[in-house]
Design a protein around this nucleic acid. Structure first.
Length: 348
DNA sequence: TTCACCCGGGTTATCCCATT
DNA sequence: AATGGGATAACCCGGGTGAA
């Protein structure tokens, strides 16, 4: 299906990816012009426990720049000390000529320092460029280069996530694209549209919600079709590559989320996780997840081999089934890991 | 040239913790 | 990387502006 993409604003065309386009989707029976916003981001980590008080700033991307140190200062200091020597050597008379000469030197110094700064900046840019190129060409633990991994990771279509608000807002902007350039800019537009949105009747809102759901379902169908157009083994390989890319230090590593494939097999959960799951589901105790996890860990350790036996056996059974299904689906045996039954725990 | 910032509502990834 | 679920930070989008 070829979506006709109409950029919202010409000026923004260069910045547009597939994200903010109004996509005319021809569905099976009808053609609808729907605004489509695609969220394709990886939410970064929530601050860890240790970073209390350091509330993260709201922002688009992580700040990798703006960490320039105090280096330039030292260079200027160096320059000033240098000037003192020639000044001493000059004759104390003829102050006017001396002053003019000093002024001249100051101008030259300034020009020199400016040129030096520019040169340093250029060098820095070049270094960073080379660094990026190197990272791209570097082989990873799998023996593949980042470029090769990226190719193996495949490029599934983006799943658009919509909402009543997004549909409504996009529609308003589409109807009046020049509004964002008016007084107050986007801020004002968002406020105005929000006011309008709040005044919608519940049935109107419902209709926007319906539209949003349709869009999402549409997008998900497209995604599924894409996935199933590939062999399960190819998707599996892509996900292996993706996991590796996520662990790498390359820029945008987080965007390589696993491809969702309904055919994919899930490895059976371990004996302990089964135990933990059961405890949760039975509602044996309340409290936060960490609290319960601590409790589970404690109880698990207290359990005797006899009591754990059922959990290990269940795991073995699941694993055998998993191995059978794996071979049938992917055409080769599941990768073997070390000992599967840690019954004989060598507590050295 | 690149990117943070401004706004709001909605969505989602990550954290917390144990063990294997 | 997997289990459990609540909390929440960070992200998305639009365009103009100004700083790095």
């Amino acid at each position: 299906m070829l979506p006709t993409q109409l950029p919202l604003r010409l000026a923004a065309a260069t910045r547009l990816t597939t994200s903010t386009t109004f996509v005319a989707r021809s569905l099976l029976t009808r053609r609808v012009l729907v605004p489509s916003f695609t969220r394709l981001y990886a939410t970064p980590a929530k601050p860890k426990k240790g970073s209390i008080g350091e509330t993260a700033k709201r922002g688009r991307t992580t700040k990798t720049t703006s960490t320039t140190g105090a280096k330039p200062k030292t260079t200027t200091r160096k320059a000033t000390t240098k000037t003192k020597e020639p000044a001493k050597a000059k004759q104390p008379s003829k102050t006017a000529t001396l002053k003019a000469a000093a002024k001249q030197r100051a101008v030259e110094r300034a020009a020199k320092s400016k040129a030096k700064k520019a040169e340093q900046a250029a060098k820095k840019r070049e270094r960073e460029k080379q660094k990026r190129a190197k990272a791209k060409a570097q082989t990873t633990s799998s023996g593949l280069t980042v470029k090769e991994l990226k190719a193996q990771a495949l490029s599934p279509p983006k799943v658009a996530s919509s909402s009543a608000w997004i549909v409504f807002y996009a529609g308003r902007v589409r109807n009046n694209p020049s509004a964002v350039r008016g007084a107050g800019g986007v801020t004002q537009v968002v406020k105005d549209v929000k006011r309008e949105y709040d005044n919608l009747s519940s049935s109107e809102k419902e209709s926007y919600e319906r539209r949003a759901k349709e869009e999402k379902a549409d997008s998900e169908r497209e995604y599924k079709r894409w996935v199933e157009g590939h062999a399960a083994e190819d998707i599996r390989k892509a996900n292996v590559a993706r996991a590796q890319l996520r662990r790498s230090k390359i820029r945008g590593a987080k965007q390589y989320k696993p491809i969702q494939d309904e055919r994919a097999l899930k490895k059976p959960i371990s004996a302990y996780l089964r135990f933990n799951k059961e405890r949760f589901q039975s509602g044996q105790h309340r409290g936060s997840v960490p609290e319960q996890a601590k409790e589970s860990g404690r109880v698990w350790k207290e359990l005797g081999d006899h009591e754990k036996k059922d959990y290990y056996e269940a795991y073995e059974k699941d694993l055998a089934a998993y191995n059978r299904e794996y071979e049938a689906l992917y055409g080769h045996p599941a990768p073997k890991k070390a000992a599967t039954t840690p019954k004989a725990k060598t507590t050295t």
